[in-house]
Structure formats: C-alpha cells, structure tokens
Design a binder for these strands. Structure first.
Lengths: 261, 261
DNA sequence: CCAGCTCGGTGCGCTGTCGAACAGACTTGC
DNA sequence: GCAAGTCTGTTCGACAGCGCACCGAGCTGG
C-alpha cells in the first residue's frame, strides 16, 4: 500500500500527479499532458467496483494510478466468468472508445483498490484525433493488451490451474508496489474462471514450496523468481511484450524530477 | 478505373478486384482505394503456408480475398498450439504493423487456401497516417479481432470440445462461400489445441445429429442453425460484434455495380 | 491392381478439474 | 467474550479430456 504523504507525488488530490502515477500519462510530452490535465479527475477505485458494464457506452476512460488494478472479464449467461486481461498503472481502461466501437462485450472490475485518473470520453478523443504521441502510446498499449489476451487464451487451453495461478500472481505483482496482494481465493477463482477449491489447492502447493504466504485475503510473495519458475511460458511472453512495447518506469523516473523542479 | 472483364470479381489477375473481394478494401472511399491500388498485389495463399512467424518483422500486410482464411495461433515451446483468432475477407492480417509493435508472439497460417491482396508495409503506413477512413476501418476491425480473441479465451476456459468445434466451424463458414470446408480433423485439432481424437468424437456426434457430413478432409455443413444451437454463446457474441463493427457485404454489393459501370 | 500413405474411428487407463458438502480458523461487531 | 460471518482447507465421486495404441477405410501413384 502506498500511504506515504510526505512525497508530493503521492498527494491524492492533485491531478498533476498523473505525470508520475500512470505510465501512459507520464510518457506523454508535456504539452499533450497539459492539454489533458484540466479534464483529468482523480477518482477512488473501490475493490469490486464495476467500471464498465458489458455493452454499455462509456462516458469516461480511466488511467489507473500505481497500485490500482482493473480486470477485464467476460461474464457468461450462466454467471460463470473468465478474466481476459488486467490493466494497471501501465495502461488505460476503455480502449473501445478510440478503437471505434464504443462498447465491448466484457466488463471491467476493480481488482485491487486504489485511485485512477478519469478523463471524459470527449477529451480523450480530442487529443487522440490530433494523431500525436497519445495515439501512438495508446495503440502500442492496445497491442500489448492484445498479447495479454492472446496468451490468456493459450493459457486457458493448455496450462494447469497451478501454472495459471502463478502467472496471475505475477501479472498482479507487476502492477503493484511491494510484494503483497489483497485478494481472497474466491476472488482469484472468479478471475481465473476456476473453482475456489482449485485455487486453494494450488495456493497450498505454492505455500509448502515457500513461494508465497497466504492468510485470509492477504498473499505475500516470498520468492518471486521461484514463482516465475513455476509459471508457464505465458507470463514471460506477456512480460516481454509489455517491456518491448510500453514506456518503462525508469524513463519516467528520469523525467519526473526535472518536471517537479 | 475498374477495367472489368465480364465478371470482374472472378478475374484472378486484376488487383482492382480488391474492391469486391475484401470487405475492408471494398469499404474504402474511392480515392483511398485508388491510392493503395498501385501497390496492391494478388498473391496465392496455399494451405498451411506460414504468413508471419512469431517475432519476425513483417514486410507486407495481407487482405484475404473471399474464401481465404488465415489463422493466428500461438505455438508453445513444446510444440502444442492454440488458435487465437481467424481472419478472412472481412479483415486484414498484420495489425501489429500499424499498432506500433511491428511483430507479435503469434504465427499466422493459411487455414483455407485462396488468394490475398498483399500490400507493402510502407504503403499501408502511408495511408494509415493520413488518419482517414482506412485508419478508422482498421481500428474498428482490430476491435472486432480483440472481441474474437477474448471470446476464444473464455471458450477455452469454459466450454467443451463439442461446443468449441461448433463455434469454430461456424466462424470458418462465415468466411467461406458455400457450406463446404476443406480441412482434416488433425488440422482442426491443432487449431483448437485439442487431440485429434477429441475432434473425431465431437464431429461424430455432429454427424449423427445430421448437422454435418464428414469425409476425408471435407466437411459439409447440412444444418447451419442446428450447429448454431449446439455452439456456445461465444459464437454469437463474436458474430454480433463483427456485424456491429464492420462494413456489411450488402453495403459493398450496393457500391460495386456503380463503380463497374 | 496393389503398396503405401493419409485420414478417420475406437478402446483403455490416467489425470486434472468439477460439484457438492463440510470442518476448522480467523475476524468483526455487539 | 461470544455469535455471526467470512475465508481457507479437505474430502469424495463423477467425468471430460489426454496419451497411447491400433485398426480400417479410402485415396493415389507406380
């Protein structure tokens, strides 16, 4: 949890923090970011909150701040669900807006509470249609997202619950500060589209291997590389594509102090 | 401009036929299409041919002509594979080009032989960066593709081989003229990422229900709506999104005669 | 017309996941 | 401190899909 208040970048009330809290916004040239800032609004993202409903037109897009994760999942007629992708500080929720469809058949749910920078659809489109850096960034992000979806499909087909849990933990971990996740096995089961017992069993194995510690909705990752070794290749494929396609936190770290001064 | 013989759509040598053989090209405004035509080239697409290899930069993009289907699939380290999406006359193969990544971790393979309109990467980008109708069409197509991938992930998670086979046959059928598919069970098994025996078993069931007829690499669909009834909701979700997002063949049928005159 | 190959059909034991039921552990609110 | 609720751990039978082995049917080329 990011609860420090000394650091100005952590102030929860200033939209200008967007420059450091979301990697897409942070990677924008200063003028583009300035054009968006007046319309950016910080909103809290509560665990379980439904950001988009299937087939419903979106009035806003969301840039999750560090530590906030949004899950895109499809809910079937019988109520069963399956996660399609997750989005954290590296991306944006609401790509259907600029892709042209306006809606998707999937639902977006907050999977890890935090904050997000909310932008009205019209403001996003205005900037997108300048065909500048924002468009390039968003398209690259979309391609990364496509890779994640593809790999989810592959993983669902071929890999065991054990492997998928490891992959999922790692994907979540990459989007969080620290090594602790706040989520029940029930929730994870819903995301993976498997039974809760299956997650219990898989988590138990990881625990006996001393890779994680689990207790009532709180997971602590003890051995990250051990977890990577147990995950299927899917995690690596997605990770490498994200690294290749998206701006790195390091690049932002270089920039942020210069702007803050 | 359209130097048509009696039946322009059937002439295999005239790139101008692109206006009727691929729905994306057909939906372009005349000026945009004219700009692309000089660079368009008709190429044969042989069954099994690998159009893109994982991680390899693309020199061309392909607009499949009616009856040609290209499969995007991921091949795992152990050789097992899983299909991520299929593309036919309604789309284009090579979206990574304009999305900005240039490559994808997946492979593109011809799943149903035919022809395609091949366009050099540079020519596509030139037109894409005019930010006109081509860009809009390609982004909408990409969103449709995203839906297909998402639904593949869901289907892989929750549905039986029976249901997936039905979905897959319908998706293929939508991209072919007529009701006959040329593909062995082995091939289908590779696409779905299941055992050949699993496909045999599922196909046998469909055959005893008089929905399809199967014989040595040739499938005839006898009862399309019966097949739809046996498929999972995934097919319907994808179909509706494609109908919603992409230009309809009917719209092209309205246009083509006007241009031919 | 036969040899060789491809493609499809079938049986069998194994494993992973499911569905359901239930017990124990921890947390929270009163 | 206790009751109620939430979360995790475990068990058991059912079953879909897997891997393997094998056969037969149909095409194809010499």
């Amino acid at each position: 949890m990011n609860t420090s208040t000394q650091n100005p970048a952590q102030n929860p009330c200033d939209p200008a923090d967007a420059r450091t809290q979301n990697l897409l916004l942070a990677a924008l040239p200063i003028d583009a970011c300035d054009r968006l800032l007046p319309d950016l609004e910080i909103v809290p993202m509560a665990l379980g909150e439904v950001i988009y409903e299937s087939g419903v037109k979106q009035k806003h897009v969301f840039f999750p701040a560090s530590g906030c994760i949004v899950s895109m999942l499809y809910v079937m007629q019988d109520g069963a669900s399956a996660e399609i992708a997750v989005v954290g500080e590296e991306g944006m929720v609401g790509i259907a807006l600029f892709m042209g469809g306006g809606t998707t058949p999937s639902r977006a749910v907050v999977q890890s509470a935090g904050r997000a920078y909310r932008l009205p659809a019209a403001a996003l489109m205005r900037e997108f249609e300048r065909h500048g850096e924002l468009q390039l960034l968003l398209l690259r992000f979309t391609q990364a997202l496509i890779t994640q979806m593809s790999q989810t499909a592959v993983c669902n087909r071929h890999h065991s619950v054990d492997q998928q849990l490891a992959r999922w933990l790692l994907l979540s971990l990459d989007r969080l500060a620290g090594s602790e996740l706040n989520m029940t096995q029930e929730l994870i089961a819903n995301m993976l589209g498997v039974r809760r017992e299956g997650v219990t069993e898989a988590a138990r194995k990881l625990q006996t291997l001393n890779l994680i510690r689990y207790s009532r909705g709180r997971i602590t990752v003890l051995d990250r590389s051990g977890l990577e070794a147990r995950a299927c290749e899917c995690y690596g494929v997605v990770k490498r594509e994200y690294d290749r396609l998206l701006p790195h936190p390091a690049a932002i770290a270089d920039r942020a102090p210069a702007e803050a001064s």
